[in-house]
Structures are given as C-alpha cells and as structure tokens.
Simulated scan of single mutants.
Amino acid sequence: MRILLPILTAILFACSPKDEREGLFGQLVERESVEIYLSSYNLDSIPSDIGQLKKAKSLYITKDSTGQWEVYPPESTIQEMTDDPPFRYVPEELTELTQLQNLGLVGLDLAKLPTDFDRLQHLDTLNLMMNKLNISNELDKLKKLENLKYLVVFGNKVDSADIAELKRANPKLEIIGGLE
C-alpha cells in the first residue's frame, strides 16, 4: 500500500489539467492590476500568453522600465518614425481580457490593433502613445468601444478628421495628443 499511494498520486497529477498559472505570465493571473515590461521577460513583442490575465482590470505594457523620464521627439519627426520598421502586432488573445477597464500599450511599435479589439467593452481608458498606428485604419474598432472616456493617441498617425469622427461616435470621449 505504501508503494501504491505515491504511484496513484503521481498518476493523478499527471492526468489533471494544466495549471492556469503555468506559462510566461503565470504569476500574474490573479492580479487585477498588471504592469509588464517586455525587457524583463526578454521579449520584444507581446506574446499570446497575455490571454492568461483574465482577471486584469488594468494592464500596462511597454518595452522596458528604465526608471527615468523619456524625452519624446518633436511632433514633426513622429510622422517619419511611424513609417519606419520594426512594426509589431498585438496578439488576438488580448481581446479575451474582457474585464479590462484601463489598457496601456505604450511605445511598442504597434502597427495594428487586433481584429476583435471591440470585445474590450469595459475599457474606460486606452493609452496607445508612441506606436506606429494609423488611427484612420483603427477607427471602426475604436468607435465600437462605447464606454471609452479617455484615449491617448500621441505619437501615432492621426489627423483632425479621425478626431472628429471619434468624437461624433462618442461625444463623451476625451482624446489626448490628437489634433483637437
């Protein structure tokens, strides 16, 4: 019996489903507020493991944490920067985080938002600062975020027509860094 018990225990654990805490962000799955610095994980883009963070209400992702203030280039050079590679993308798994209220995707060289981005209906604040998004191409997704109150678009391609269209779709939306 002494030998049988450890063998049965081992079999039981081997057959049970994988622990949701495994994976790249396993230690963060229970948190409601999460900050991810990609350099801390030796990453240069957001992995699909981001979909593990289903309890997150606030999520901030950026390349690294230097602990220092960054000086951003003048607005005249930002348009040139948005055309230069590298271009990165947010994995579709991010749209599974339907409890998100605050989302920051900052300085990630993002060229496009996920197709089902409008699933994030609880979003109140969205910070897309310093990416390579063409906001005109993302308007349909952004207009469907009916609860969005604050949108930061500084450092992306944005024009006054984009801002006007977003404000028409959502009059209570405050857009920061756009051409008001």
Results as ranks from 00 to 15, higher is better:
Met1His: 06
Arg2Lys: 14
Arg2Pro: 05
Leu5Ile: 15
Leu5Thr: 12
Ile7Tyr: 04
Ile7Arg: 08
Ala10His: 04
Phe13Asn: 07
Phe13Leu: 15
Ala14Ser: 13
Cys15Ala: 14
Cys15Met: 13
Pro17Gly: 05
Lys18Thr: 12
Glu20Arg: 11
Glu20Lys: 12
Glu22Asn: 15
Glu22Ala: 07
Gly23Lys: 00
Leu24Trp: 02
Leu24Glu: 02
Phe25Ala: 03
Gly26Ile: 08
Gly26Trp: 02
Gln27Pro: 03
Gln27Arg: 12
Val29Gln: 08
Arg31Met: 15
Leu38Ser: 01
Ser40Asn: 12
Tyr41His: 09
Tyr41Glu: 02
Tyr41Gln: 06
Asn42Leu: 01
Asn42Glu: 11
Ser45Thr: 15
Pro47Asp: 09
Pro47Thr: 06
Ser48Pro: 07
Asp49His: 08
Gly51Asp: 00
Gly51Pro: 01
Leu53Ala: 03
Lys54Glu: 12
Lys55His: 11
Ala56Thr: 05
Ala56Arg: 00
Ser58Gln: 10
Leu59Asn: 04
Ile61Asp: 00
Ile61Cys: 05
Ile61Asn: 01
Thr62Phe: 00
Thr62Leu: 02
Thr62Lys: 12
Asp64Ile: 03
Thr66Gly: 13
Trp69Pro: 06
Glu70Asp: 09
Val71Lys: 06
Thr77Glu: 14
Gln79Met: 13
Glu80Thr: 14
Glu80Asn: 11
Met81Ser: 07
Asp84Asn: 11
Pro85Phe: 07
Pro85Cys: 07
Pro85His: 09
Pro86Gln: 05
Tyr89Gln: 13
Pro91Arg: 07
Glu92Ala: 15
Glu93Tyr: 03
Leu94Pro: 01
Gln99Val: 07
Leu100Phe: 06
Leu100Met: 06
Leu100Lys: 10
Leu103Arg: 02
Gly104Ile: 01
Gly107Met: 06
Leu108Val: 09
Leu110Tyr: 00
Lys112Gln: 15
Lys112Ala: 11
Leu113Gly: 04
Pro114Trp: 02
Pro114Lys: 08
Pro114Gly: 11
Phe117Cys: 06
Phe117Tyr: 04
Asp118Tyr: 09
Leu120Glu: 01
Leu120Arg: 00
Asp124Ile: 14
Leu126Ile: 08
Asn127Cys: 00
Asn131Ile: 02
Leu133Ile: 02
Ile135His: 03
Ser136Arg: 12
Ser136Thr: 10
Asp140Asn: 14
Asp140Ala: 14
Lys141Cys: 10
Lys141Val: 01
Leu142Ile: 07
Lys144Gly: 02
Leu148His: 00
Leu148Val: 14
Tyr150Phe: 14
Leu151Pro: 01
Val152Asn: 06
Val152Thr: 13
Val152Tyr: 14
Val152Phe: 15
Val152Trp: 04
Val153Gly: 05
Val153Cys: 00
Val158Gly: 05
Asp159Phe: 08
Ala161Ile: 13
Ala161Met: 03
Asp162Lys: 04
Asp162Arg: 00
Glu165Ser: 15
Glu165Met: 14
Ala169Phe: 07
Pro171Arg: 04
Pro171Thr: 08
Pro171Leu: 13
Leu173Trp: 05
Glu174Ile: 15
Ile175Tyr: 02
Ile175Ser: 01
Ile176Arg: 07
Glu180Cys: 09
